[in-house]
Design a protein around this nucleic acid. Sequence first.
DNA 1: TTAAAATTTGGAGTCATTGCAAAATTGGGG
DNA 2: CCCCAATTTTGCAATGACTCCAAATTTTAA
Lengths: 215, 215
Amino acid sequence: MRGMAEGLRERKKRQTRQHISDVATGLFLERGFDAVTVAEIAEAADVSVNTVYNYFAAKEDLYLDRMDGVVDRMSRWVRGRRAGESAAEAVVRELRSEVEAVSPRVGLMDGYEKFMKVIREAPTLRARLFGLQQAVLEDLETTLRAEAGAADGDPMPTLVAGQLAWLHQTVMGVIGRRMVDGGKPAEVSREVLVLIDEMEDLLSEKVLNYAVRTG
Amino acid sequence: MRGMAEGLRERKKRQTRQHISDVATGLFLERGFDAVTVAEIAEAADVSVNTVYNYFAAKEDLYLDRMDGVVDRMSRWVRGRRAGESAAEAVVRELRSEVEAVSPRVGLMDGYEKFMKVIREAPTLRARLFGLQQAVLEDLETTLRAEAGAADGDPMPTLVAGQLAWLHQTVMGVIGRRMVDGGKPAEVSREVLVLIDEMEDLLSEKVLNYAVRTG
DNA sequence: TTAAAATTTGGAGTCATTGCAAAATTGGGG
DNA sequence: CCCCAATTTTGCAATGACTCCAAATTTTAA
């Protein structure tokens, strides 16, 4: 069986993990993060508390699991930039595209306000979210350094990553606030597109021309 | 006694608080954040565990207490900007001044690397630090909105605050890293002054001219 | 000196998280 | 169909942060 497609067992694990996460998320959305104990989640998911911890390192991961993919999203955008396009241009283009498409990936969906509300009300979840932002920044800096072939001491990747992370965080932050304030996805989308224009206008030429793909 | 200068009692409380914080910080620096229990701190400080919690909401606060004053520092700089000076200009000037002076307020001091090392190695402390950054941003946004007399829906205070927070965070981050890497305060100061020049160069005119003090 | 106000403390309890070893489950031969 | 070995699940005990509460203890002002 070695080297095989690793079928049943793996599939089952993935399902169990997903099941626990789903049950937990449902409870959190219903009653808030702190009001639900891990023991309750385990019982509701029909597994032992230890099994929950087999799959998730901490209670917060049960909720923020669905945010995976956000961390390296900007890096993927940068790596996928078109010929003649800079890192910043690619990020702005992709971000605009997601917002224009009213994509759930940027929080433009019904129910997102409930999701954010749970985070807002739980300090430990909020802290985790900040940690994610930091992870995005660090991931992007690494990618930029590699893509631009910059030396280790060169500060430009740090600065450009900072500017792009600012763009991303601000957009995600405004979307979150507007959705919590009761905005409809389509409305918020329109509003944020204007915001992106304004932000693009604040980006330096040096940033906009960094790491242009040659070829 | 009401309305009085509130002397002895207040002083004693401040002293107790400071004493607990000092003892805790000493232990953390020696053995790391997670390796020290609150019970140990209480014993070393010669108080009960409950007294520790009377003064500090959480274990992390025992260490990060000394960071108070950082949160509204940029707001103070902005409010103190000179006639004809914009918010951004004031922040850059003050920041440059702190770095030039090799000020401990920005981490340019012997021992800062040990302080940062403890934070780096404790996820919960790191999370708290990110929370502080967020607090800086929010505080600054509020101040900018007030100082510029901007309307509630106006996004400019958000954007300018984001740019200035980027400046501040990047500088503090680089200082932290360089100090942990063994840099001497004076060395790091010189290096960071160059960085500030580069960052200033990336700021948009719109940002540099926002909230100019008239008079 | 004394009574009210504030502070400190002890103790019990909740909950997240970890470590460990026993028990149950699974997949693949035989 | 049965058994072995690997993997997963589970029960149990323990640690440590944090909260609640009511009983001491200390401090202050009259």
